[in-house]
Design a protein around this nucleic acid. Sequence first.
DNA 1: GCGACAG
DNA 2: ATCTTGTCGC
Length: 232
Amino acid sequence: MPIPADWPTTEAQALAEQERLRPLVQAVDDDAPCRLIAGVDVAYDDDHDLVVAAAVLLDPDTLDVVEQATAVGRIAFPYVPGLLAFRELPAVLDALAALTRTPDTVVCDGYGLAHPRRLGLASHLGVLTGLRTLGVAKTPFTFDHHDPGPERGSWTPLTDPATGEEVGRAVRTRPGVKPVYASVGHRIGLDTAVHTTLQLARRYRLPETTRHADSLCRRALTEAQRGRTPAN
DNA sequence: GCGACAG
DNA sequence: ATCTTGTCGC
């Protein structure tokens, strides 16, 4: 997988990069099977300019973890709503590259097409790697939606208030529990993105992929903080 | 101009 | 994201 060489450092560069990548997003199902699914997530320590990403591979049927990897690096971009990919992806790409196998699908903690300019981190990662991706976020960001029914599996459209178009879906993964927000990343359709989300989130609100990646990058961050930098 | 805003 | 105690429940 490609390693970011000329990664954007200014908002203007980032916006130009999004404009370049946006037309390359494929928002329809790809025929390729999914035998290996990955979850990726990132943890930060801004004080020490430290970022740690985790990539965890699961068997999509049993949801068993079959491999995992982490990557430590320097924070490459500040947090700017709408430009999250530039902050998270460098480390994520490194973590994915550290795996001995390549996943067929990658689940991101955030959005894909549900983005002001239709290029959230999930879509961004998909275009950069060519992998099938989808995004599952925990909050509605700037989008509108009605509350889905209380039963697991029910969903409602997530719409862009500016255009009215459906950019994702609010999905109830657990009865009576706050929904998650699924959207297309790359090489996948919205129905499949929702189906995949439900397949991965049975016991808990969030997909097992994100849960494993989240706990792993947090542990790795704590470890990285101890290893170097005693108390500064 | 002001507030909101994935992680 | 991160700062943070105890607490209710499987």
